[in-house]
Design a protein around this nucleic acid. Sequence first.
DNA 1: CAATACAATGGAACATCGTTCCATAATCCA
DNA 2: TGGATTATGGAACGATGTTCCATTGTATTG
Lengths: 230, 230
Amino acid sequence: MHVKMVPMAKKTHRIERRTDALSRERIIAAAIEILDTDGEAALTVRALAAHLATGSGAIYWHVADKNELLAAATDAIIARVMSEVAGGAEPREAIRAVALGVFDAIDVHPWVGAQLFREPWRPAMLEIIEGVGGRLQALGVPHAAQFDAASALVHYILGVAGQNAANARVHAPDTDRSAFLASVAAQWAALDPARYPFVRQMATRLRDHDDREQFLAGVDLILAGIGTVR
Amino acid sequence: MHVKMVPMAKKTHRIERRTDALSRERIIAAAIEILDTDGEAALTVRALAAHLATGSGAIYWHVADKNELLAAATDAIIARVMSEVAGGAEPREAIRAVALGVFDAIDVHPWVGAQLFREPWRPAMLEIIEGVGGRLQALGVPHAAQFDAASALVHYILGVAGQNAANARVHAPDTDRSAFLASVAAQWAALDPARYPFVRQMATRLRDHDDREQFLAGVDLILAGIGTVR
DNA sequence: CAATACAATGGAACATCGTTCCATAATCCA
DNA sequence: TGGATTATGGAACGATGTTCCATTGTATTG
């Protein structure tokens, strides 16, 4: 059952619409809220309808389908990130800032990491490519190498993003992360030394590493590689 | 009670089963066949049961759930790739070979690209990490930098893998790829030059680029970066 | 002001999915 | 041989995304 708002003055012309009217923006905002608080799997059309105190059909009047909803939510998050980064810093620092912005956004909204892979021509991906690639020219990267350089950086960012999204999907929303890392590290350490010598050696590093620092180390590594073709 | 059974040798325990008996291996093989020919979305438990001429319940006797089935199928593909690569080539070439092996495998089995992100402690991911990281030591990468270097390479490979998987998901199974690239390139070229100058410039490169070559260029870029910390 | 057209709503209904349950069949073991 | 165990196949369940449609609210028109 639902409680309707009481239209107080019905004699005068009420230009304003009902204050609880649905809109594409309100739907996207509600979707983001559900995704952030309860995870990717919790965003069902029914849950969304309940959260908005409406029915499923009303949602489909404003949004084509769930895919479009997720894509729009992703675009909203990434656009916000890129506008916050902006700035006219030194190009190398700007690239790091863009990458870290995306990383941090996915830390807060893990579902974005999975969405970035779908429909790469959507605004979200364009923003990232532009944010990274736009600074490569200022870095002095030869024109012929800019496409490869931007592609490498963006794909690396995507890889980390997807991995973080996957990790968030596996965990309970607030599982102790260090406990999880320790458990995987223990599995690695218990592997057959003859078959997996490297992975075994990396077990302790996996346990102690900081995701954010390591992500940045990867960006720096790629930037160093880009520097060699200057 | 007398024994009138067939000669029941302890070691020759071979009683023939029905030749069409199900098995975990047959189920995984059938799943891979459906995934490869009809795409990720076509793999439903019902389709799989029909393909094996059995019922859904029988499948669940051999396999825990669909996740495990997909993970096992992924492990099978990646294990095959890594055993084929192997070889004692020069480390730099070996890393390129491993990366290309994964790339080519995902070109044939796009669904693998999406699966690699789930449960990174599974055999498939271990194989890749070991295949890449194991050669870094031989490359002369300092011990302290090996974790970051391997992580960067693997995440880059993952990013490309996920992107290719997404592309394959969007296309009809045999859509003309160059036509698709041309259409996206046209969209890029039509963007606002003030907002997306870099993406616009890259449009023609996007149209003409070769995925495989560009992937390798990224690997080389990262290897070059790794070389700077030697 | 009444009548009407249209945007918007909410919930029932539908097809499909992964999974569970269970009656049965096939096979093994004592 | 007979009971126990393994294996099978299909019905049934709950949940999902989506469509359909009767109904409501609002704006426009005669």
